Amino acid sequence: MPTDDNINVHNFSIHMGGKTLFKDSNLNLSHGRRYGLVGYNGTGKSTLLNHIVARDGQFRVPRHIDIHIVQQEAPANDVSALQTVINSDEMRTRLLAERDRLLAIDEPTMEETERLNKVYERLIFIEADSALPRGPC
């Protein structure tokens, strides 16, 4: 059943460098499901994702849906792939940093206390506490 949380793009085509990557294709992503793209290099996986992220043309993804892309190449370090994906959630990272900053204040003002409450409300709304157990979508 279609909802505002589903992504449906009908009859789209994507061309790159004179090559047709997708022709008269349909994309239907249902809320709550997980998807993976599998294919050989150069078949259009990243190009498709970039169109979805850009929300251009037929790819009108509802604004309330957050989309995160992790580039194929990442600097070599000791951070796990899962943690790299979680760290890519800039809103969550920013809210957690602000929470920590506000909690470190010895005697917060009323304004700082109100801001901390708003930060907590937003963290609950984006389900920040379930990011690690949930993993990447």
Rank of each mutant, 00 (worst) to 15 (best):
Tyr35Ser: 05
Ser25Tyr: 07
Glu127Leu: 03
Cys137Asp: 08
Gly18Arg: 05
Ser88Thr: 15
Phe125Gly: 02
Arg33Trp: 08
Arg134His: 13
Thr84Arg: 13
Asp56Met: 06
Thr113Phe: 09
Leu21Asp: 06
Leu102Gly: 01
Asn77Gly: 15
Phe12Lys: 04
Glu73Gly: 00
Lys23Phe: 11
Lys45His: 07
Leu132Gly: 00
Ile105His: 05
Pro75Arg: 10
Gln72Ser: 14
Arg33Asp: 10
Asp66Thr: 05
Leu103Trp: 04
Glu112Asp: 09
Phe12Thr: 02
Gly135Thr: 08
Asn50Gln: 14
Lys19Arg: 15
Val9Ile: 15
Arg63Ser: 14
Leu29Asp: 02
Met1Glu: 10
Cys137Pro: 00
Glu114Asp: 13
Ser80Ile: 07
Ile69Thr: 14
Ala131Val: 06
Leu96Lys: 06
Ser130Phe: 12
Asn26His: 14
Pro133Gln: 09
Met1Gln: 08
Phe125Ala: 12
Arg94Pro: 00
His68Pro: 00
Ser46Met: 06
Thr3His: 05
Met1His: 09
Arg99His: 10
Asn11Ile: 02
Glu98Trp: 02
His10Glu: 15
His31Pro: 00
Ser130Arg: 14
Thr43Glu: 12
Gly57Val: 03
Leu49Gly: 03
Ile69His: 15
Asn11Arg: 11
Ala104Asn: 12
Ala54Leu: 11
Ala81Lys: 09
Asp89Phe: 15
Met110Leu: 14
Ala128Glu: 02
His51Ser: 05
Val119Asn: 01
Asn117Cys: 02
Leu82Tyr: 05
Thr20Tyr: 00
Val119Arg: 01
Leu132Met: 13
Ile86Ser: 03
Glu98Ala: 03
Gly135Glu: 08
Pro75Glu: 14
Leu96Cys: 04
Leu116Thr: 01
Phe125Ser: 11
Asp89Glu: 11
Val9Met: 06
Gln72Lys: 12
Gly32Tyr: 05
Asp4Pro: 00
Ser46Asp: 04
Ser80Cys: 08
Arg33Phe: 10
Gly57His: 06
Leu96Asn: 07
Thr109Tyr: 10
Glu114Leu: 14
Ile65His: 04
His51Phe: 12
